[in-house]
Nucleic acid binder design. Sequence first.
DNA 1: ATTATACTTGCAACTCAGTTGAATCTGCAT
DNA 2: ATGCAGATTCAACTGAGTTGCAAGTATAAT
Lengths: 143, 143
Amino acid sequence: MSDLCDFPRLLAGQGVKVTALRLAVLEVLGAAPRALRAQEILEMIRARRRVNKVTVYRILDDFTRRGLLRRLAVEDRASLYELACEHHPPHPHFQCHHCGQVQCLEPAPLERMWAELKGPLGNRADRIDIRVAGVCHKCREMS
Amino acid sequence: MSDLCDFPRLLAGQGVKVTALRLAVLEVLGAAPRALRAQEILEMIRARRRVNKVTVYRILDDFTRRGLLRRLAVEDRASLYELACEHHPPHPHFQCHHCGQVQCLEPAPLERMWAELKGPLGNRADRIDIRVAGVCHKCREMS
DNA sequence: ATTATACTTGCAACTCAGTTGAATCTGCAT
DNA sequence: ATGCAGATTCAACTGAGTTGCAAGTATAAT
Ligand SMILES: [Mn+2]
Ligand SMILES: [Mn+2]
Ligand SMILES: [Zn+2]
Ligand SMILES: [Zn+2]
């Protein structure tokens, strides 16, 4: 998930002011190897500067509504966020029952399934989330 | 989702005492046409008798761990619960962005995909959740 | 019948992730 | 300089779920 995106440009394209905090949120997510909780994003930004959590929540929410980020609903109470730019197309995720860690999977099988699920029942579907759960290799080794 | 299951037998099979409350939880879920929030289950049981929410949460948690129920992580803060008995095999779900309503979809495409996603990266996967999101037909009509 | 034991349910208080509304700050245009 | 809009902050709140422990209830010895 290391990044190729031009964040300032991305924001400008949304007609949104480019601020240090908004950039920080995108940079933290761009540098992360996996989807992050709001809390984690907050802490990573705080390693460099002072921020209020409300601001971060509001930015995450705004970006998600604009389609710059995807919010993943997982088994734990807190959602995860990941970049939704052209370099990070939608893909399934794997969550370990044991450690709770969520990893990103390859998008391949999604494409095939999408066609089948997109139009059922008269709904207009525009998003599909796939979460595969089980026990990850690290946790298997430990036990 | 109306029911064919013998709940007392189901509980007995788990070596779990058959109590009025545990049955009530299963009956409410068995009668529901869709997955329910803990709050909804609580209210439905309260239409008939007195219950403490903690008890219901504990029963839901216990049943989920035993595999009698599935817990669905959705976009809203509260999870949904549905029966996981032989008559209700795992299936994808559709959630409407507008009203938040979650409906159950047919299991068909799941089977095909499962084989592909089950074993990647050395993880032992034992569950796959698919959530399709968009705008449901009711909400489309309204707007 | 009486007591012991295990399990179930209830109560109060708490946690945690987010949310709200109002106040302040900041960059920019007049 | 002054005004304005949008960005950020602060304190207080919400809602879903959790915790520890007390009280109730059923069953199993004695
Ligand atoms: Mn991902
Ligand atoms: Mn379902
Ligand atoms: Zn793990
Ligand atoms: Zn709807």
